[in-house]
Design a protein around this nucleic acid. Structure first.
Lengths: 223, 223
DNA sequence: TGTACATCAGTGAACGCGCGTTCACTGATGTAC
DNA sequence: TGTACATCAGTGAACGCGCGTTCACTGATGTAC
């Protein structure tokens, strides 16, 4: 019976690529462990041994998956922005008419921050501190978003005549407001303050959008 | 002759409080050392021994000045916000007429970021990562600023009839834009990109200020 | 003024600990025939 | 199908190192008389 079991397991192995599949599982466990720990103490002071301990493997096995902690950090950046991009895509497909765009966008952001908290926390806390290579990667990804948003904005009725770099300024302002809102949501300790932050975000974005009405690109004088 | 020198030095000692004065100097050396190192690696991964090495004293002498690294971190927060408050005060006294307020504010911010880079860098990089007690302190200080700005804004001709919490929203938006601008200036690698960031900041603030014209507090519908 | 004693910022040795990394290894998975 | 060998994810011991913290100390500064 033991031999037959072995045969069956070997057959499954060939089918699924058991070894590779298990390796992938461990890799993911390392990433999850790091993401969990980074929320409490920041990536810069995270040790390789802490991560492997949390992931349930021996320290030396780490090197089967990443050259060092920096490489793991970059993988976390990639994963986190994949989450963020999924959110943006969902938000974009949600925009059928423009009425209520602001409210729906802010609510979607809040929902994603709640559901994918570790990824957002990671981006926010590593954006300005510690490992240079990660800061650079994050800055680059955020710039991509601003560019994409500028493109989206150019399809809005009021904005389709604006020069590209004015749209860029507007897009940057909106992305900043959204980032700040996400930061606030992450710091919010209870539902009341989370609601307060959402309300503030909506009002801020409305103020920006109303600003468009009064805005002439490149005004000759400051107010 | 040696005795006479000693007498003279003792006289000076009584006058100046030499011991206390030297202690203060060492304390400042520790703060400066930490501020310098934190820019490269973040506060969370900064060791007590690194700081004392940089300051030129033996590790154990550290305890004559701070209980632990957290206490030193809080002192850095206090110092950095003292710098920031000095800047705000200067900016406020600079506002005699409202024409060109935006340009002058942005330029003053840029100048201070250049001159007091370590303090700004410290606030920005510790705002969202690592030591909770420092994050909390920084959040508190920033909230104070928003409140003060809201008060300042209430003296502007267009805004003096606004309800307090709408001014709060506006002040928050402006502070966010300024913080983001400071963050950008810190990341800017050359004068060209620094100029670009300043130009963008001015245009963003103009857009916000123009927004005031189109803004009715608490609009019944989203746009 | 001179003397005798107190204070205390900074020293230097020592400690136990967690760290990153090396190395030879084990045994399940994969491959060739 | 069964067998013999190769691969390689994960193991466990060992290393040298920098860490935070303790302790008894030194000697310049400060104080009392």
């Amino acid at each position: 019976v033991g031999a037959r079991e072995t045969r069956v397991r070997q057959a499954q192995a060939r089918q699924a690529g058991v070894r590779q599949e298990r390796k992938e599982k461990t890799r993911q466990a390392l990433l999850d462990a790091a993401l969990k720990l980074v929320e409490q103490q920041g990536f810069g002071s995270l040790s390789l041994r802490q991560v492997t301990r949390e992931a349930g493997i021996v320290p030396t096995a780490f090197y089967r998956h990443f050259r060092d902690m920096d490489e793991l950090g970059l993988a976390l950046v990639a994963d986190s922005f994949a989450t963020l991009r999924r959110m943006i895509r969902a938000a974009r497909s949600d925009v059928r008419d423009y009425r209520g765009v602001i409210d729906r966008s802010v609510e979607m952001l809040a929902q994603y921050v709640r559901e994918q908290r570790p990824h957002f926390q990671f981006i926010v806390s590593e954006r300005h501190s510690g490992v240079p290579v990660m800061r650079q990667a994050i800055r680059w990804e955020l710039r991509l978003f601003v560019g994409e948003l500028a493109l989206d904005l150019s399809r809005f009725p009021v904005l389709d005549k604006w020069p590209a770099d004015d749209l860029q300024v507007l897009a940057e302002l909106i992305v900043n407001a959204m980032v700040t809102t996400a930061e606030g949501m992450l710091d919010a300790t209870d539902d009341r303050s989370a609601d307060e932050i959402m309300r503030t975000a909506k009002r801020q974005l409305r103020l920006i959008v109303f600003g468009i009405n009064g805005w002439r690109p490149r005004p000759p004088l400051s107010p």
